[in-house]
Each structure stands twice: as structure tokens, then as C-alpha cells.
Design a protein around this nucleic acid. Sequence first.
DNA 1: GCCAACGTTGGC
DNA 2: GCCAACGTTGGC
Length: 157
Amino acid sequence: MAKKYWLFKSEADVFSVDDLAKSENQTTYWDGVRNYQARNFIRDEMKNGDQVLYYHSNSDPNAVVGICEIVREAYPDFTQFDPASDYFDPSSKAENPAWLMVDIRLIRKLKRPVALQKIKENPELAQNKLVMRGNRLSVFPVTKEDFDEIIRMSETK
DNA sequence: GCCAACGTTGGC
DNA sequence: GCCAACGTTGGC
């Protein structure tokens, strides 16, 4: 099965790529996805070895900052059962969890972040969901072409 | 801080 | 099942 390519959003002051770099095995669980469309991507399509662009949203600057891979496929997001968590969902039942998570491991930080502004200026990326207004999914698929183009942008002027 | 976009909720 | 109200996201 062919690898898939994804973009994961995180706010830099909540969990940045540097936080990920400092994590054990440079690996983290991806908690807090509370959108059904995003959940379905996690449940149905994300496979070990899939490649992930790590993007800082609500940050300065907003940018793709790293490359990760999926190292554990969908399993229940335990924060949905934790009343102390911001992500607590009292309607979710342990025997049928509503929300799932994957684990990702940092492959490397990009040499230079690729700013949203630069992505918008690149006509080859005009179809990428990142530049489309109103896209609020925290995880979504990107094409291999877009993935490669963003990495290329980080390595060239 | 503002506001547009859009998903979710709840009254009917 | 419709749809208005509300809450959240995220760029600027």
C-alpha cells in the first residue's frame, strides 16, 4: 500500500515542534482531535510509515516546521475519558470511544520553516487545503506533490 | 482583538 | 429534519 501524506496543525505555544523534539523518542500521541471528518482520517486512512508535515497555526509565523511519520495507528484518545482534561467528552463511552489518536515521531525539523505566506505565493500549491479559506481541520491529507514541494521550498531560497 | 467560516447543538 | 444560535478555529 502506498504511503499517504498528511498535515497536522499544532499551536506553537501549546505543543511546538521543539516540544516534540524534546519528547521521549521524539514521539508523541496526537490528542484532542474532536472533529468527525478528522477522526475518520485517523481511523480509516492513517497507516504506520505515512509522512506528516508538522504545521504551527496561530503562531508567528504560521509555518510548516517539520517532518514526522506515523508510528502507531488509531487507538482511543484517552483524554476523552479524563474529566480534568480540556478534551473530556462525557458523551463518549469506554466500550465505544468516539475519538481516536495516532502517535507520530519526528523525522527532522525543516532547515527553514516554510511560512504560510510563502505557500500562498506558490502557484503550485494553490490547491492545497492549507491555503483554502475556511479549512479548520486539524489533520488532513496532502498530495505527495504538495508534500515534496513544501520540503523543496524549505531547502531552496 | 476582530471577524469570517463552519461544525455542532437544540428547539420546534 | 430544519435551521437559528452558538462556539471554535485560525488568519490577519
